[in-house]
Amino acid sequence: MDGIIANIVYQFAVNWAFLALAALGLIVILGMIDIINLAHGEFIMLGAYTTALLVHAGVPFFLTIPLAMVAVGLFGVLTERLIIRRFYDNKLIALVATFGLSLILSQGVFLILGPFLPAVRMPFGGFKYGGYSFSTYYSILPIVALCAMAAMWLLFYKTRLGIEMRATMQNPEMARALGVRTSRIYAITFGVGSALAGLTGAVYAPTTSIVPLFGAEFIAPAFIVVVIGGGMDPLLGTATSAFFLAVVSTPLSYTVSDFAGRIGLLTAALVIMRILPKGFSYYLHRPMRSLRALAGMRM
């Protein structure tokens, strides 16, 4: 019995981590600067490639994770400066342009580095509990996701940069009037979102083979999380919508089949969309704020 409960908790946590990490970078960029990056999957792929190339060059795996974040983050800043910057007045066009970018990235990597890179060995082994065995590495992914969110929370709410970012998000003109260099803030925000994609790519690199379409499997789940999470509060949105989707799909995948789990996930997304079209975060954001105000917390 212990084993079954542990197993369900484990599966749920692994599911949640996958959904949250797939979406986090995308939703930060959407929430903060209202851009949907269709090349998000390719940014994740770049993170995985950075990690794989460094590991094969002899760098220890755990050291490659921050390096992948920095590399993809810088690439994101560059992308914002060269491409995204042009589209703040027509955001649908940004969506199309980033699709072009995604074709270039996946096909470019294919042409330069070939159809695949050798895999990255998964660190740690497994452990047994109640008749089931579990992967240690997978078990720490939810913790990684939580740490990434905590770091984002600290950045947004506890630093001057974070305040400037939120100010820019809520009212760019006012922020500019108050002396915030919003153009710089946009670049940084896009870089932060990209770095999160890099993190996702790096930590999932050991779980699969490294191919140019590495990012494709993250795209659909990431979009679903974003749609029902909403961009109002990126962290709250990601956490709650990933939680909700994992709650729906885990038992279905476990008891029926993976296909049932997938269909359940999509049905849930459609229903939520009809009931809460602005996403979880929009409806949760205000109550949270009033709660905090009641408790005398400074927002």
Binding site: A119, M122, F124, G125, G126, K128, S133, F134, S135, T136, Y137, Y138, P206, T207, T208, S209, V211, L213, A216, E217
Partner: peptide, 14 residues
């Protein structure tokens, strides 16, 4: 490509 993930995952889970 997606299904290839089974092998490292199963192996990690012993």
């Amino acid at each position: 490509q997606n299904h290839g993930n089974y092998y490292p995952q199963a192996n990690a889970a012993h």
